[in-house]
Write a protein that binds this DNA or RNA. Structure first.
Lengths: 227, 227
DNA sequence: GTCTATATCATGATAGAC
DNA sequence: GTCTATCATGATATAGAC
């Protein structure tokens, strides 16, 4: 009985923490906020997770484990299908970023709340969460990096790495800002309701990312070794 | 004498706050950290700025005033030069993002420290700083939005707005991560030292941004009104 | 303008009864 | 597993001497 309720309590804490970390950031969210929102006792966080830092890690882990497994699964399938041929760059981009963005529709996986939390966390990591995320992402990143190298043999590897980085940035920003509206502007986008906006975000962002990924190579001023 | 030193104190506080907000975020930085780092008394912040929030605003204002004035100046010059013709999209992008990125070389304007602070703040704004930044940016954003509409008459306006948004994201991420290294990966980029990396960031990012801005339009699944 | 000293409050964490 | 009560710490802000 008590054990059954504790599963509930654990999930309630995770849900509340996810929402509040998204809205106010890690430092801006107190344990009292979290337990108050979750309707559980203040001491429950330390009982179930040990510390606030461990709670934060568990908030991410419960979503990222699924996401990164899924990304691996999809890339496996793409590579099996392509056989000896390299996978198309657009398919790789969709496997990585599309899989992420489609979590928005999946409340079971955190929906937009988790996406926005991830978006803001990727540019504002405390040292401990930066290290944690780097570790969680390492395997997947290495696989996708290699896939892009094979898919774009004519593009210097350093360039691909940078462009992956830029793509992460565009995506983080897009998901961090969606629905709470664009951060720095108050632009109204006519003829679109909130549902449209989210549905159309994926193709919009995909076009942008592929365009950037396949852009002509930059000319460096020093014109030296463009490796 | 006392008045002369106070100018010093003000600047020392602003410099320390800029560096610490960049490294630890707003909530993660205490007034004790700031005044300790600046070598001034704890009470000096409240004397000179009134509150921590006002200090944060002043940290941004002293850099953004210059940046956004400069962006307006450059766009004025481009439009005067173009006469009746629309300005080239790549020139607009460079005027907006290039002007920002070139602040990295200008220690007088905050250099990389301010850039990285801005990068992380744009995806992690407290409510008060979000409102403040939106206000600071409004005039400039409206000018650049209009310039892009004229430069790309064949692209739907909603698409341009979204792509500007994606460009902001890629740029924020690029400047937030530079030098402290890519957040989510431990990729090594061979054959490049730190200086190269920064020098080459601008052309790299510019190619990516223009590629995304000029990408083929997305196909929406519902195929309805692609406005 | 600058400083010390302090008021007031919120934080993360834990001990120990139930 | 859950609760109350509390500890130790650090936060912002300010009053008042110099």
């Amino acid at each position: 009985m008590a054990e059954v309720r504790s599963v509930d309590t654990r999930e309630r804490i995770l849900d509340a923490a996810e929402r509040l970390f998204m809205a106010h950031g890690y430092d801006g969210t107190s344990m009292r906020h979290i337990t108050g929102e979750a309707g559980v006792n203040l001491a429950a966080v330390n009982y179930h997770f040990g510390s606030k830092e461990s709670l934060m890690q568990e908030v991410f882990r419960r979503r990222l484990d699924w996401l990164n497994d899924e990304r691996m699964r999809v890339l496996d399938a793409l590579e099996a299908e392509a056989g000896e041929q390299p996978v198309k760059p657009s398919a790789i981009v969709d496997a990585f970023f599309g899989t992420l963005l489609r979590m928005a529709d999946d409340e079971k996986r955190g929906g937009v709340t988790f996406l926005r939390l991830l978006g803001r966390t990727l540019t504002d990591p405390s040292e401990f969460i930066r290290a944690f995320l780097a570790h969680e992402y390492k395997t997947v990143m290495d696989r996708y990096k290699e896939a892009l190298f094979r898919a774009l043999p004519e593009v210097p590897k350093a360039e691909i790495v940078w462009r992956f980085h830029f793509m992460l940035g565009a995506t983080s920003y897009a998901i961090a800002g969606t629905d709470a509206l664009r951060l720095v502007t108050d632009w109204q986008i006519e003829d679109e309701d909130a549902t449209d906006r989210l549905d159309r975000l994926v193709p919009r962002l995909m076009s942008f990312l592929i365009g950037g990924l396949r852009a002509p190579l930059p000319q460096f001023a020093d014109a030296a070794g463009a490796d």
